[in-house]
Design a protein around this nucleic acid. Structure first.
Lengths: 207, 207
DNA sequence: ATCAAAACATGATAAAAATCATGTTTTGAA
DNA sequence: TTCAAAACATGATTTTTATCATGTTTTGAT
């Protein structure tokens, strides 16, 4: 840990900027000290698929160091971020030395994998409407609420669509519908959950 | 490794039998010595989604030990299997002691996660037709070919559908179409790839 | 403050895929 | 070996969702 402290290089990433890019050579991992980050892959037709939403305290870019040498996704700052870079070699050496850290890393990976497999199941089996509802709940779980009870992350409708795995228009329509039905309240990019139970029901969770 | 050898408990699992079941308490991991195994999750409407195809040499059930205490999927033998059970504690202790094994484990997990994220992207963005073609190629990659050049695994059309993430009828129709177009040759459950390039093109890979 | 670009919205249409219906073939257990 | 269940097949229909088209609103840089 001291080693990491000594060697880390922190920097500020402005909103919209890229931390690393899909397929580029992986020189190390990044620890997010502050800010929110989306990790996305490019699909065939140039459409973005968001595969992970990271927040302060999360590490991004580790997959590339463990299973290959290139980043498999692009990491983009959703707001001004403070990230610290840990070079490849340092990270790998520490991981080899520190059994506890390794174990922690395995837990994180297992967790991510489990979530990914659930996402695969839902993507294959649940209609878009349910997935949009589920995504709103996911964003609340991940980023919490702000002082005004809004889900504490601002995404464009297109980004929400790319997280859900649907067309932008479809996402817009369903959000408007939830808004009209007083399940959520929209004001610009801000989302307030008015009726969480109804939202859970709409997402068709737990059965 | 010697410890594992001493403590492992091997057994024969008949085709169709379950090795472990989703949501049941995870008592350990299983190493597949021989045979093929599908790992699947139950969707909301009781529909199966296959999330992983395992083969001889693979370990299954490790996610549950690392991130929770219950299996997140059901493991079913696709043919008579020989598996060896490694109890939870043994596995965890060895993992804590053996840095090399931990590292190997992390690599495996990273690899799986990368594949899962790719699958998410394809599920969200590629039409069923392309995904069926891709799945045939995936099965060939995973299990290879038998003496007669057939993809070396026998699945029902329903299982193929549950791997692709589509309705059984749709999978049947597309397989028949590929058969008619001489891209593949079907004889019962056996699949022979006649024109791999065309199949890759149909899967719309690499662009 | 202005203005163009991006984001948002919504109706109409088309395409994709699921579902429903029905019949045939294969399979495995008694 | 028989026979019912499971698997396979295919046509018709409906549902879902994407795409296309077009207009409005918001946003951020100058």
């Amino acid at each position: 840990m001291d080693e990491i402290e000594a060697l880390k290089i922190c920097s500020v990433i402005k909103k919209g900027e890229t931390i690393f890019r899909e397929n580029s050579y992986a020189s190390g991992v990044y620890c997010i000290n502050a800010g929110k980050v989306k990790l996305s892959m490019m699909g065939d037709e140039g459409k973005e698929q968001i595969v992970r939403m990271a927040k302060s305290g999360d590490i991004v870019g580790y997959k590339a160091l463990l299973s290959g040498d290139r980043y498999s996704a692009t990491a983009t700052a959703l707001e001004d971020c403070n990230v610290c870079f840990i070079p490849r070699e340092i990270f790998l050496v520490i991981l080899q030395k520190d059994a506890a850290l390794s174990f922690e890393m395995m837990k994180v990976l297992s967790d991510e994998l489990k979530k990914a497999e659930e996402k695969i199941t839902h993507l294959a089996q649940k209609p878009v409407r349910e997935r949009v509802a589920e995504t709103i709940l996911f964003l609340k779980e991940t980023y919490g609420l702000d002082a005004d009870n809004h889900v504490n992350v601002l995404l464009t409708r297109e980004e929400i669509a790319n997280l859900v795995g649907t067309a932008t228009e479809t996402a817009i329509r369903l959000l408007s519908e939830f808004n009209k039905d007083h399940i959520i309240e929209l004001s610009g990019k801000k989302i307030k959950i008015l009726d969480q139970n109804k939202l859970i029901k709409t997402a068709n969770l737990f059965d």
